[in-house]
Design a protein around this nucleic acid. Structure first.
Lengths: 221, 221, 221, 221
DNA sequence: AATGAATGAGTCTTCATTCAT
DNA sequence: GATGAATGAAGACTCATTCAT
């Protein structure tokens, strides 16, 4: 799974949409600033210890609030992870759609997408850890959330591929679903390796190699 | 990560090597039959509920033994998962090495590898779930096990790719590491989709499409 | 072993020093009242059933708190016993030092000490049971605690004896260590008998007989 | 409490009485040699780890028998400790009675008794540990055993003291019960110190000093 | 008689969640 | 809204004891 995203603190012009609408109704009348602080703390803590090994009190401590305060902003522990993944995802998807939308070439759009994917995670290593390590779990444990959001992302990729196929840029004898799986899987695996190897290489600079391989294949001819 | 494997019940001619060496010395003087039964039960239960949500008593119940008996064969709950991943991995790697070893063409070896990868997981859906969902977790939670074993697999793939590059079959302007990541990631993502979508398509039959895409790329020309 | 002490509820003028310093820093920001309640409950329960047969839930129940609450005040079950012994010991030693300090005659100081020893345990029969029955165990099981605290008490006794020897009140041909052992052992045995015979005689009133026997032996004439 | 004794291996002419009648009927038709081996192993293990921390399997291992075999000779774990204490006690008491019986002077009998007490424990340090550390526990936990056996010992001491009082050797204004407590307590405390200080002094040679102190106190003149 | 694999009852401890202040 | 002390359900693990061989 592993999914690109962009934390609260990064959006440019999309920021306005994200902050004020903390993808839920939880943070009703409370200070959204504290909501975000808890979310950021949660991502850090979960990245360090994993979701199951993270105590709500750890998160509260890191966020500088009391344990009980967490429950003013989140229904339960699961919702914290959910919200963190969700908000990051939303930010990423928004940006991905807007950035790729202004391009014509399907190939160029995929290249940009790959760069955004890697850049989003490279920018926030903690979030990257959470996405690569906790998302699959959550897929089954925390319900269908991730699947829905991932499907959005997959649909974006598949749409671009189909577009390229219709325009004759891409081979049409390949299922767009499988092609999307391969591209996503390639990027995802790269991020996982980057996480497991503790960021010992530059992630974003690998985008071109991956996309190039995806485009041209490994065959010598 | 997601990793192919083959449970006890699957090996053909390699079976002899696998069964008698239940990668552990734990089950010293006890019946290896019971060891395997607990392992199989564990895989099923973990596949259904996830590792953290699986009770040792669930596993014991499924295996038809008393709770305490589990601890005659495994040091603790973590070791059960560890052993399951490990034994399946070993079985897969052995088979992969032997099957690919008898081929000359690097391309053909990759194709076979992809088929084995998908077939191993398709054959044992529970194990597939465990690998796709729990392995990354375990990478961080249960220590470095999975990384070491995965590296073995990666090295196998990379070796074949480098061989193809040296023989001129594959492009040499692509890092073997990145290429291996892409191939593995593509297969892995396919399996994850298959798991999350509850096996609603035939996994093994997709091997050719993935390998073909990996070989030739998506570019129309 | 068996050691006199005085629980929270008994100090006269020394109370102020004892209560505010519940020899622990554990119960940081929590109500010290609850800390003491758990300690008292623990002493009662342990006195009745012995340490190993006492459930933490028994203690919690007796203290009128939830099981988990015990762990807000004590690190684990061992620490409960530790703290009980320690706090009682501290209270006794303080009082013993202050009471004997205001006397001149070594003989008189030993007599008072013996009375305090017996009185402290007679006053809190549960604590007496714990001291007579659990302290030796704890010497080996819970670490060196009891030894250190007992040494304090022995040193107090030995100091008085040496003083008497120097002043010519006591025979000098007797090792102060052995003499202290005999006096302590005599008192301790008396308390043990009192405990095992379920308090069927008045403990404190035996102090004079014991001291008298001890004196007529060690007295220079 | 702490009680003198003499392990199986030490009795001279009393041995015959002890071995063949392993104070119970447990070892019915089994080899008494194995019974004794288990008992000795138990004493060693319990001395090292304490009763509660000793596993039956530890004892079996040390005795060189299977776990289940222990239960052919002993009803349960408690009975092992019980039997160990009991058999040692019986051996000691028998010897004490016979040795003191052949003397006339009450003073001399007490002196010999003290020497036997210390010698019995000094001879078998493991047993000494068990007696000093586990006996009080067992007094309450394992039932009334120790009390009954201890009463035997106390009665022996008290009888000698009363005899001395009647003969005018000892002061009559001292309760024989208290005097016995003091003598026993003094010896017991000495042994405890010897155990806790890991045998860093010679135990038996202290007998005279203790008895001397006791005498000069209780002596009519 | 001896074995030792199997049993399963028993308990300490953790930690998400609540709620009185 | 914020706090954090209190709650108590839940579960991994141990080990005395049994019994089929």
């Amino acid at each position: 799974m592993g999914v690109p995203l962009k934390s609260d603190s990064g959006a440019d012009e999309t920021k306005a949409t994200l902050k004020p609408t903390p993808e839920a109704s939880e943070a009703a009348g409370k200070k959204p600033e504290k909501y975000q602080r808890i979310l950021d703390a949660a991502i850090e803590v979960i990245a360090e210890k994993g979701f199951v090994n993270s105590r709500v009190s750890d998160i509260a401590l890191r966020a500088g609030v009391a344990d009980g305060t967490v429950y003013l902003y989140f229904k339960n522990k699961d919702q914290i992870l959910m919200s963190a993944l969700n908000s990051a995802f939303t930010a990423f998807i928004e940006k991905a759609r807007s950035e790729t939308g202004r391009l014509d070439s399907a190939a160029e759009r995929l290249r940009i997408l790959a760069q955004l994917h890697l850049a989003a995670l490279a920018r926030n290593p903690s979030l990257a850890v959470v996405f690569q390590m906790e998302l699959r779990q959550s897929a089954r444990i925390l319900g269908e959330f991730s699947q829905h959001r991932l499907v959005e992302y997959f649909d974006l990729i598949r749409g671009i591929i189909r577009d390229g196929q219709e325009k004759g840029t891409f081979r049409s004898d390949v299922s767009d679903r499988i092609a999307a799986s391969c591209l996503f899987g390639s990027l995802d695996e790269l991020v996982t390796a980057w996480v497991l190897r503790r960021h010992d290489f530059d992630l974003v600079s690998k985008a071109d190699a991956v996309v190039d391989l995806f485009f041209r294949g490994i065959d010598a001819r």
